[in-house]
Amino acid sequence: MPVRRGHVAPQNTFLDTIIRKFEGQSRKFIIANARVENCAVIYCNDGFCELCGYSRAEVMQRPCTCDFLHGPRTQRRAAAQIAQALLGAEERKVEIAFYRKDGSCFLCLVDVVPVKNEDGAVIMFILNFEVVMEKDMVGSPAHDTNHRGPPTSWLAPGRAKTFRLKLPALLALTARESSVRSGGAGGAGAPGAVVVDVDLTPAAPSSESLALDEVTAMDNHVAGLGPAEERRALVGPGSPPRSAPGQLPSPRAHSLNPDASGSSCSLARTRSRESCASVRRASSADDIEAMRAGVLPPPPRHASTGAMHPLRSGLLNSTSDSDLVRYRTISKIPQITLNFVDLKGDPFLASPTSDREIIAPKIKERTHNVTEKVTQVLSLGADVLPEYKLQAPRIHRWTILHYSPFKAVWDWLILLLVIYTAVFTPYSAAFLLKETEEGPPATECGYACQPLAVVDLIVDIMFIVDILINFRTTYVNANEEVVSHPGRIAVHYFKGWFLIDMVAAIPFDLLI
């Protein structure tokens, strides 16, 4: 008679799926529990143990900040960024110097990925580790590398530091407007667009060049630039800015003055950032001319202004700041037409079709709590990747769950009947059967004279019903998954307890 339990259901295979997918890609990662103190490590794979030199037993239950890997060259700011990422709910990448158990130093890129439950609360953290440099290539500990984003994938490793954006290309926007319009339909740009040429040739750093990471940081200074100062900065030398009595002219307006920039070969870094931020506020060169004239017309309804409409929906549905990093990277690809469009465009503009998908598509409701890094690593669709929660398995109709209350009560009843059979069957065979043979035949009273025979008949009927119930009862397979398919249940029961239950259900007393 089957006594099969499996009270692990309803099970959740999400954690096993993450481990299996990460292991298949030869990654070095740990999984931490966000619900406990210090976000203790609950799993670390073999790749991480080989990377740091510690065994799994030495890593388990330690804080996922990996303070046991810190050393003299470990930056405090990087460690603080990892700790801050564990307090938030967004994906974050941090470069930090770690030390192995043998004392060797290596520069590592740590990717902190939160995993949320159905309520939107962070319950786990996945920390992925990628070695960037070994100890002989690690720089000085005073050099802070965590304020910069990861290198873009479309640049060669040897040319990542030679990417320079020439400031004269930004200063000569109005001069290039006529050349853009003359391109017409034969050019790649839309009317009114501004073409910015980027020099990728390796050259020595000069005062006129600005690194790509500095251009990325310009967006942080746009908020500090007032509207009046932006307007004066875009007017140009024809209309000098008016300053109040006793007030000095704005240095932001002076930063885009061609006369002032041409007199000296070098520009201050602050002026460069502010000038680029001011130019980015204009949607095209037409807006710059309109600002000089004193009238700013409404933005025209053409394809170039609607190019950012799908980007707005993608940004609203993005799951991490990696989408913004990807957008900034692609927006700086050289030799393309940049349409400086305000994100607050007309909502009635139709979304044009684009061959290049900048932001990841909208994630469906079932995966809105899973970050983009987890979705990318697992390579699963929205119909396959579940949320991290207890999910009731989908069972067929008329199927009994093996952990249901009805099955528990039924098993206790069958257990009592088995005990009765084990006690009274030998007793009936030894004593009652002998008395029946010696006594007179009682054929007239039937079952009324033999109450134990009636009980034995009921017990046999219950055993037959138990066999039928076992054909529709779920079970737990070797992978700790609840199986509810009727065919698989029948095959599993035939290979197991079916023969024993059938022999126990045969009414031998009635056959004798």
Score class of each variant (00 low, 15 high):
H7C: 07
H7D: 15
Q11T: 13
N12V: 12
R20A: 11
K28N: 15
F29M: 01
I31Y: 01
R35T: 09
R35K: 06
N38W: 01
L51F: 05
Y54M: 01
Y54G: 01
A57T: 13
E58F: 06
R62M: 08
T65F: 05
D67V: 07
G71D: 01
P72A: 09
R73K: 12
T74Y: 01
R76Q: 15
A78Y: 01
A79S: 07
Q81L: 09
I82A: 01
G88S: 14
A89K: 13
V94H: 03
F98H: 01
R100F: 01
K101S: 04
D111L: 04
V112T: 09
V122R: 07
V122C: 09
M133L: 13
G139S: 15
H143E: 14
H147D: 05
G149V: 14
P151I: 14
L155R: 12
L155N: 15
A156C: 06
P157H: 09
R159K: 14
R164G: 14
L165F: 14
A172P: 14
S178C: 06
G183C: 06
G184Y: 07
A190C: 06
V194C: 07
V198Y: 05
D199G: 06
T201Y: 03
T201M: 04
P202Y: 01
L210G: 06
A211P: 06
L212K: 06
E214Y: 11
A223T: 14
G226D: 05
G226M: 06
P227W: 05
P237S: 15
G238Q: 07
P240C: 07
P249H: 13
L256Y: 06
P258M: 13
S263C: 07
S264Y: 08
S264W: 14
C265W: 15
R271M: 06
R273D: 14
M291F: 11
M291Y: 05
R292M: 15
P298A: 06
R301P: 10
H302A: 08
S304H: 12
M308C: 11
L311P: 07
S318Q: 14
V325E: 10
Q335S: 08
Q335E: 12
T337D: 01
L338G: 12
F340P: 09
V341I: 06
D342A: 04
G345M: 14
T353N: 14
I359D: 07
A360E: 06
K362I: 09
V374T: 04
L385Q: 07
P386T: 01
